[in-house]
């Protein structure tokens, strides 16, 4: 009964979130509706707070969870809606960090820290690197190339993008809310054991060995592909053997 109600809550919050993202998405030639965006964001986050309150009841960790989750959701909204890619990447880091904190909070330390190392430490550095290479920090709107440089600032199909994203999210949210969480305490207690990193390692190497290997092979293939694409050698003037042979012609002098 309660869960049925919560599903509607989740859909409602999701709907507001969708509207919020839609109005927040930067689109060329559309007036900026900042006030509406902020209002909707506040409504969405408030709805989330109420949802968490219903969902978590009186459990001890509801404050920490709510704060981290709101940080994550708010950051995620800004990742999508921020007009400047570098800031989007930075908000993504915020999302990764708050998610990692949530994961650590439920006892999966290894997973959380691995998330930080892999995402925040490596992948997002590469993102920032690429974004920085592709555009300088000056406002491109002032230049005459504004419309050309706008390709990664402006949303092409905001309606469809928001719709697709939020249908996916509503599905996931409904499944999470509908699940019977009565055995959660046992599961989390089992996960909170002292050596859960060890257990995780054992599991990865026995039960999920094939998945791990497949993921590795996939990455390997991707890497080889990237090298193959990048290896095309552009001929350079210094590569030609035109230059006179050095040394052994005439007198050769020892430099020291």
């Amino acid at each position: 009964m309660l869960s049925q109600q919560l599903v509607y809550w989740a859909y409602g919050v999701g709907g507001f979130g969708a509207l919020c993202v839609y109005f927040g998405l930067p689109k060329e030639g559309r007036p900026e509706r900042r006030g509406l965006f902020v209002l909707l964001l506040a409504v969405t986050l408030g709805g989330l707070v109420l949802l968490f309150d219903r969902l978590l009841g009186e459990s001890a960790n509801r404050f920490v969870f709510s704060i981290l989750a709101l940080l994550g959701v708010g950051g995620a909204v800004r990742v999508v809606t921020h007009p400047r890619p570098v800031y989007s990447a930075l908000y993504f880091i915020l999302v990764v960090l708050s998610t990692a904190a949530l994961i650590i909070y439920v006892g999966a330390e290894f997973l959380g820290v691995a998330l930080v190392i892999v995402y925040a430490g490596a992948i997002l550095v590469t993102y920032v690197f690429v974004i920085m290479l592709s555009q300088q920090s000056t406002e491109a709107t002032e230049s005459r190339f504004a419309s050309v440089l706008d390709y990664d600032r402006s949303a092409r199909e905001p309606v469809w993008a928001v719709l697709a994203g939020f249908i996916l999210m509503a599905t996931v949210a409904a499944i999470i809310v509908k699940r019977d969480w009565s055995d959660w305490d046992e599961v989390s207690a089992a996960a909170m054991t002292e050596k859960n990193t060890l257990e995780l390692g054992k599991m990865l190497m026995t039960e999920f060995a094939i998945s791990v290997e497949l993921a590795g092979v996939l990455l390997m293939v991707a890497m080889i592909g990237a090298i193959a694409v990048a290896k095309k050698r552009i001929p350079h003037a210094s590569d030609a053997v035109e230059s006179p042979p050095r040394g052994e012609v005439g007198k050769t002098v020892d430099p020291f």
Binding site: E109, V113, A114, V116, A120, G121, K195
Partner: peptide, 12 residues
């Protein structure tokens, strides 16, 4: 439990 990974994460 994962002190070492913590340092790596922070350093990264």
């Amino acid at each position: 439990d994962i002190g070492l990974l913590y340092i790596l994460a922070v350093a990264s």
